[in-house]
Design a protein around this nucleic acid. Structure first.
Lengths: 222, 222
DNA sequence: ATACTTAGTGTTCATTATACACTTAGTATA
DNA sequence: TATACTAAGTGTATAATGAACACTAAGTAT
């Protein structure tokens, strides 16, 4: 490191994750229990310091993989938080990311159980470390906004699904009801869905066609 | 700084600005000539290192003020760039901002002339230092996108203006023509504009009503 | 007085969004 | 094996929005 830089602050740089999933009809976010001071035993966003030679995106993927064992999920950079005093020990800049994981992809064999992780409903967050409450609120706002004008919800769906499940997913995220017929029309009109040919025969009622996404790629809708 | 952090990389943190204006019917961005290695004499985005105790937003405002003398302009955080190797000397994380300044607010008495600043048309960028070309491309994309669904263009207008000037501003940014009557209908329907009562008597033709914004506040339009 | 230039204004048509209710195809059970 | 039950699946009419389009008005210049 060039000594010329020493006049300036060289903060620590962390990458923190807002990891969302939906389970039990609730939008939930992943929290990690802190094992160290400050905020010992408080819940916080999972995160970690940037490593030498590691890009920000790589760091975010690494942290996610360490905590959940999952890979290849939807992830994007959210915002960078750097107010002085947000970490009482030292100056820390946090690049926040947000990620979406289908509930079905968690609790899989490769997701080693980590005892100090939990999933909290986004409208009942516990007391959080640092400014993480603020960051998560911001992440939820972004997710809700993007759900209304993009197909980002795809990142939360399992491989195959009924259209009614997709609709429910939208309803949970935007916290509002949708009209069944209009919803189906709109979704099928995007051309992003594909019938799998298989039927879901669970339940004492007419079976549902199962669908999948042609490509997992986020696009902007009308 | 806690020595525990020393295992991790402590990068330099800079704040770099994509400062836009419109002049001579072109969307332009501010470039600064570098006085030091690396990339000596190359053009770059204006920016600087984060100072001790300074928030990211404050740093962005400070840099903008140092370069242009202007304050109170529209500014937002854009994205954070942190690939290793983007600065050949050392690890540097750059939090990029974008700002909008009406051309009329520049070259004012308080804007001391800085010889190593220039305005470049965004579609004819010179060779730039670091990854600044990539960052500016990203900023232009964001500006264009936001122009189409928000009233962000307001940040580029002078205090008072004709509706035809506002339309031209939109046309320059989105690089497309708009229908005069539909444009005026839509703009007036937002309720964000206010007649000043004054007329613009320049030119050999019917004078135009002058308008102003009720409040300089970015909102999302239909 | 006339020519010139930009300002200012409404209507029609096409597209998109919204509201709304019945039939279908399975399972469960009497 | 008939009947009840449940969620799946489907179409139309109306309202709202967006797009296309041409003439008159109010000044200045000659």
């Amino acid at each position: 490191m060039n000594t010329k830089y020493m006049d300036y602050e060289q903060p620590g740089v962390t990458v923190d994750l807002a990891v969302f999933t939906v389970n039990s009809s609730k939008l939930k976010v992943m929290l990690a229990k802190r094992a160290e001071e400050p905020f010992h035993d408080h819940w916080s966003m999972p995160g970690g310091f940037l490593l030498r030679g590691e890009s920000l995106d790589d760091a975010a993927c690494r942290v996610l993989n360490e905590k959940t064992g999952v890979k290849n999920v939807y992830m994007e950079q959210l915002y960078t938080f750097g107010d002085p005093g947000r970490d009482p020990r030292a100056r820390v800049i946090t690049v926040a990311y947000f990620a979406l994981i289908p509930w079905e992809n968690l609790n899989r064999p490769e997701s080693k159980k980590i005892i100090d992780l939990t999933w909290s409903s986004v409208d009942q967050l516990p007391r959080l470390a640092f400014d993480h409450r603020e960051i998560l609120k911001y992440a939820v706002r972004r997710l809700r906004a993007k759900a209304s004008y993009s197909n980002i919800v795809y990142g939360l769906m399992p491989e195959q699904f009924r259209l009614s499940e997709l609709q429910t997913m939208y309803e949970i995220i935007i916290a509002d009801k949708l009209d069944k017929r209009n919803f189906r029309k709109r979704m099928l009109a995007t051309g992003l869905l594909q019938e799998t040919g298989e039927k879901d025969l669970t339940g004492a009622h007419r079976p549902a066609m199962l669908y999948q996404f042609k490509k997992m790629e986020i696009t902007f809708l009308s």
